[in-house]
Write a protein that binds this DNA or RNA. Structure first.
Lengths: 127, 127
DNA sequence: TCTAGTGGGTTACGATAGGTAATAATGGAG
DNA sequence: CTCCATTATTACCTATCGTAACCCACTAGA
């Protein structure tokens, strides 16, 4: 017997979809985390995230800016300095980043042992 | 004086990075949501998610299975039926999906141009 | 003047991931 | 022996990404 489990989650939602495809683009998750941690300059971001090239960083920052998640400000020092900051909309992605971080730490590497997983080894269900 | 803002978040974490790149791959977020909502069959998933082709669905499911997020089980009815279910590890992604969903609903579409960062808190979202 | 350094990118080009459409494997039904 | 349903896979082509080199504006030396 199953209880009347109310399906509170719809199987598909266009807003969710748009959001998850935006922040799920390659490197975007890492960029957002670094910015939430306070990194704000172009070269600092590029150095913080291993493997992230200027090309990709530039492209992702433009996307995030276009979505209102990030603002770009030019500071007329010399040499010129550019800072990227999260908008309020961007800051509120903190909960998402934290949720992913918690999941990632909880399930880090340990391969399948220790806790009782309902059925995580595909050894007996192959076709 | 909020000077004592402790940086509790490191700018980069390899576990986080791996996780966000996994669940951020194209369509993966949508697939996970649908599965959390109870959709478990191949064609149901394909129908639930607009634009998702069998090729991509197959590929993503294999990745998620390889990561221990999803299990595949073959049910020998006729025609054969295949069900995909979330493991405990997969179920625990619910918090991530919910966080994204809340963010997406809160910040759905509003004009949001310019640099008006301190703007409107959308008063009500859906049920 | 020429060269080097700082900061923030852009361009060119090959490699890989993804979109699209057609088709396969399986087994029962007609 | 052909049809249908279900779960995929293959072939082909385009879009996105990775890599490396380069550009621009400015300053400080030599």
């Amino acid at each position: 017997m199953e209880m009347m489990k109310t399906e509170e989650l719809e199987p598909f939602c266009p807003y969710y979809h748009r959001a998850v495809e935006l922040i799920g683009r390659r490197w975007s998750g890492a960029i957002l985390r670094a910015m939430l941690a306070g990194v704000s300059r172009f070269n600092e971001l590029a150095e913080t995230i291993p493997g992230l090239s200027p090309r990709m960083l530039s492209e992702r920052l433009k996307e995030l800016e276009a979505e209102g998640v990030v603002v770009r400000s030019v500071i007329p020092t010399v040499p010129v300095r550019v800072e990227y900051h999260l908008t309020e909309k961007g800051q509120s992605l903190g909960s998402v980043v934290e949720a992913v971080a918690r999941w990632a730490e909880q399930w880090a590497d340990p391969p399948a042992e220790g806790t009782a997983v309902s059925a995580s080894t595909p050894s007996e269900v192959e076709s």
